[in-house]
Design a protein around this nucleic acid. Sequence first.
DNA 1: CGGCATCCGCTAGGATACTG
DNA 2: CAGTATCCTAGCGGATGCCG
Lengths: 137, 137
Amino acid sequence: MYETNTDVRSSSSLEPCGSDDHDDCGIRLILDRLGERWTVMALAELSVGPRRYRELERALEGISQRMMTLTLRRMERDGYVLRHVEKTIPPKVTYELSELGRSFAAQVAMLVGWTRQNKSVIERAQVNFDAQLEKKE
Amino acid sequence: MYETNTDVRSSSSLEPCGSDDHDDCGIRLILDRLGERWTVMALAELSVGPRRYRELERALEGISQRMMTLTLRRMERDGYVLRHVEKTIPPKVTYELSELGRSFAAQVAMLVGWTRQNKSVIERAQVNFDAQLEKKE
DNA sequence: CGGCATCCGCTAGGATACTG
DNA sequence: CAGTATCCTAGCGGATGCCG
């Protein structure tokens, strides 16, 4: 019955930190980042391989320069992304996932997988919920 | 199209939806919810067992009535939570995780596990990043 | 008890302009 | 090319008050 895995699923049930009173056991550290609009897409693009600033900007269609920079800075600050600068003219800046970043991307990939499998169920629940509301009006 | 696969890790690498142009393949459906402040804590509390409104409110220390209600409504709308009403006086309303909700909670538990394992690495990266910034000023 | 309605501050994030 | 700086708004979320 032993899972000798490197596995992350050491606690198979939720209930963060053994019901640590109101601390969320640090999960916010990553969920605040994932909650932002572009992080996952940047993670996805970078998990293909290293990318220059402009390449990312083009891949993340619709992103503003401001958010491109902010997103990358925050990912770098958390240690997911490594930033390499070549001080040529014009400059060349390359972004790359760190070991931590690749591990993180793998986790997010699982979430994406779960979402893909349950998307239709969720959407049906939403439609149904909204329909019930209307009937009461 | 049949999905014979119960395993969520069908795509081990990120790169949502085979580089679907700018759609994030629906991951926002769940990340927008997880990005909110109280969802994970509510999920955690409910994964222990069914709870009444006030019980949840007390468990999620610091939450406002407004956000307690909003959080529960949105979780109900997505199909994670079932709401049972007993029209007594005073009323008794009980919330409970659905099958989907338990499956979702299990996914979040993995994220919590990953966070626990990497928390210190991330925090060290942040401190280091901030220190580098100050040196340049 | 289990809500909904209202007001209000804070911040994610878009648009635009400028720089080394 | 790879940013920074400024302005602005839409929406999360807190505080407060009322209700069946």
